[in-house]
Design a protein around this nucleic acid. Structure first.
Length: 270
DNA sequence: AAATGAACCTGTTTGC
DNA sequence: TGCAAACAGGTTCATT
């Protein structure tokens, strides 16, 4: 469910509730999600200094320990009063100083968590091969052109490859390709530099706009306070098979690429 | 090398 | 109406 804008929205929602709070108790309602859960009792009594995001990972800093959490497809965090009843698919609950609790819910349990040394997380296997942040300076035309050079595979899976650039999932890959007029099946190595420049701009723009809208809610995603993200209303192609293209009035098509639905305008995207 | 498909799970929607 | 198949925002691994 969550791509960069959704994880960023969760991160911003969590920060004011977590920063400066102590973990009073830890409740794990099951031993594993996608992977075995770490022993979270080591966080007991520790103070959370800050919450950050790297790619689609959330980072909770606790002194020399770091709690890392990936939401998978249906993971969500909520901060609620400590006395709140069990929530559907609730798997972990951390009681916080100040009377609130942090609840992790995840219907499909594709999410996962880990605890590692706070000064060495970037060397962890989850992070060591990640590409640059799409909203940072390192993601530019030169960089993307170097990634595409000589590659005969289609551009869309490349855009969704976290080793190339983090945070771009199925929705925003479709949207960014539409905005830049590039067909999702086009071989990555056969895109003119000027069009790659446009693609870099489209990726950055669509992600920034989605962050400003609080992410996209299709069915599962919710912010920390339970409210939805509004960017789904702004989709140009995602989920719009059979509808009219807003640019050329042609019919939006859906195809399957690498096992994922791809939405595109066959007239605008070449 | 690189692309596809399956696997991990459950809930919801679609189609016969 | 009911049941089964298809499908869903992610990631990793084995197989062509």
């Amino acid at each position: 469910m969550p791509e960069l804008p959704e994880v960023e929205t969760v991160c911003r929602g969590l920060a004011p509730h977590l920063s400066g709070r102590r973990i009073e108790s830890v409740e794990c309602l099951r031993a594993d999600l996608r992977f075995p859960l770490p022993d979270m009792s080591v966080l007991h009594g520790r103070n959370c200094e800050r919450v950050e995001r790297r790619g689609k990972y959330l980072l909770f800093f606790f002194g020399d320990l770091l709690l890392v959490w990936h939401l998978g497809m249906t993971g969500r965090f909520h901060v609620l009063p400590a006395a709140v009843p069990r929530q559907p698919h609730e798997h972990v609950r951390l009681l916080l100083s100040g009377g609130e609790c942090l609840i992790y819910r995840d219907a499909r349990r594709f999410g996962y968590a880990g605890i590692m040394a706070a000064d060495a997380w970037q060397m962890h296997p989850w992070f060591v091969r990640l590409g640059p942040e799409p909203l940072g300076d390192a993601f530019d035309t030169d960089y993307l052109a170097a990634c595409c050079k000589g590659r005969r595979g289609p551009v869309k899976p490349l855009l969704m490859n976290a080793q190339v650039v983090v945070g771009v999932g199925n929705i925003y890959a479709c949207e960014a390709l539409f905005r830049s007029g590039i067909h999702p099946l086009r071989p990555a190595g056969r895109i003119a530099r000027q069009r790659l420049q446009g693609l870099v701009g489209s990726v950055r723009a669509v992600l920034a706009e989605a962050v400003a809208s609080g992410g996209s809610t299709i069915s599962d995603f919710a912010r920390v306070d339970g409210s939805p993200g509004y960017f789904s209303h702004a989709f140009a192609v995602y989920g719009r098979e059979g509808e009219a293209c807003q640019r050329c009035n042609g019919v939006i098509r859906r195809g399957v690429q690498a096992g994922r639905s791809t939405f595109y305008c066959p007239y605008c995207q070449r």
